[in-house]
Design a binder for these strands. Structure first.
Lengths: 133, 133
DNA sequence: CCGTATCCGTTTTGATACTG
DNA sequence: CAGTATCAAAACGGATACGG
């Protein structure tokens, strides 16, 4: 009946790991922009619209720790720091592509589903009474 | 340079949507178990290890609102409610498979990267001084 | 059995000010 | 420019008690 291989417990474990890495508010967004090429701190700050300086730092440190991003410091004045995706970081991003594509294709359906759900958000009793004697 | 198609802004937007739906602590885990077939509330509660009754309800409501899960109520005593993935829910889960696979393949590397990062978490000055001058 | 309502601690995030 | 430190606000999640 399941359409995907493997035991649910296994995939559940994997899901936890994946969410722990990129399931936060900003990581995937930053990775997404770094996939376009190396970027400096301030470039990312501008690109990722809405991120605070603090959160960009925190996010980049996390990605660096996980081996998804490298940080290169040039000791000049003013300082110049470049971030770039590691090969592993690029493969991670590639692995998210199906999910990104899925979103594009289904966004209208999701909006419709939400609107419908919210619309029938009345006091109507319950769903259905199928085959109960 | 970028390995993936499309403009970063577009993918960033998609990433926001996708994370808004399944980027929380439990949604993907629940979907994962429902992919094995329809489940009752209490079955899920047992299966998803660690989830509280409240969080299971909240999560299921969210998935239902997004059109990923259907809820069927049987008016018997005691009540009997079944949840199952919609076709859209199944395609979403399938779209996450590459990410799940990626996790399995790279988990050792990630652990190693973290260990290395934490190990050199000393007072050493900075990363590198590449081609400056 | 399947929820909802409420309370409350924890975690996450953002604003702001300051440093090399 | 590229951070760090500090603090307060907000979101999140769990425990508990109660209702249909």
């Amino acid at each position: 009946m399941g359409t995907t291989s493997g035991r649910p417990q296994h995939n559940a474990g994997r899901a936890r790991v994946v969410l722990g890495m990129v399931g936060d508010k900003w990581s995937l967004l930053v990775v997404c922009h770094l996939d376009q090429g190396p970027r400096r701190f301030t470039e990312l700050k501008r690109a990722v619209d809405g991120i605070s300086q603090r959160m960009l730092t925190v996010t980049l440190r996390g990605l660096e720790r996980d081996g998804l991003v490298t940080r290169t410091v040039h000791h000049v004045m003013p300082p110049n720091v470049t971030y770039r995706l590691t090969p592993m970081g690029r493969t991670l991003y590639e692995a998210t592509t199906p999910l990104l594509r899925w979103t594009v294709e289904h966004l209208p359906h999701i909006d419709a589903a939400r609107a419908a759900y919210d619309a029938r958000g009345d006091t109507s009793p319950t769903g259905s009474v199928p085959s109960e004697h």
